Simulated assay, not measured.
Amino acid sequence: MTMMRKTITIPDAMESWIKARIESGLYVNDSEYMRDLIRRDQERHAGEEQLRGLIAEGLESGMSNARAADIKKRVEDRLKADGRL
C-alpha cells in the first residue's frame, strides 16, 4: 500500500486531545490516530449509503396491506433465521 504524507493544521486544543489519546496507549502516534478517524468516517459513510438505499427501496415498494403485527413477526423470523436475534 502506498502511503502519502499530508500536512494539516489544527488548533492547540485538538493537538492536546490527540496527544492525550496517544499517551493513553490507544494509539502509537498521530498518524495512527488520524487513520483510525478516517476509517471510522468511511464506515459511517458506507452505513449511511446503505441506509439511504434501504429507505429508497422501502419507498419504492409502495404501501402494504399487512398488519403491523404480521410485519413484526416476519422481521423477527428473518432475524432469527439469520442468527441476529
Rank of each mutant, 00 (worst) to 15 (best):
R35F: 14
R35Q: 06
D36Y: 12
D36W: 08
D36Q: 14
D36E: 07
D36M: 13
L37E: 02
L37S: 01
I38T: 02
I38A: 07
I38M: 01
I38H: 02
I38C: 02
R39H: 04
R39K: 11
R40K: 12
D41W: 06
D41A: 10
Q42H: 06
E43G: 09
R44P: 15
R44E: 10
R44K: 15
H45I: 00
A46C: 00
A46T: 01
A46L: 03
A46K: 00
E48H: 03
E48V: 00
E48G: 11
E49Q: 10
Q50T: 05
L51H: 11
L51I: 04
L51A: 14
L51F: 12
R52A: 04
R52P: 00
R52T: 02
R52Q: 05
G53K: 00
L54M: 11
I55P: 03
I55H: 09
I55C: 12
I55S: 10
I55R: 05
A56R: 06
E57I: 08
E57T: 04
E57Q: 12
G58A: 14
G58D: 15
L59C: 15
L59H: 13
L59Y: 11
E60C: 11
E60P: 00
S61Y: 09
S61A: 12
G62V: 04
G62W: 04
M63E: 15
S64R: 03
S64Q: 07
S64K: 00
S64T: 06
N65H: 13
N65L: 12
N65D: 15
N65R: 13
N65W: 09
A68C: 10
A69P: 05
A69Q: 09
A69H: 00
I71S: 01
I71D: 01
K72Y: 09
K73S: 10
K73L: 10
K73Q: 14
K73H: 11
R74G: 03
E76K: 15
E76D: 07
E76A: 15
D77T: 04
R78V: 04
L79H: 12
K80I: 03
K80E: 07
A81M: 13
A81N: 15
D82L: 06
G83P: 09
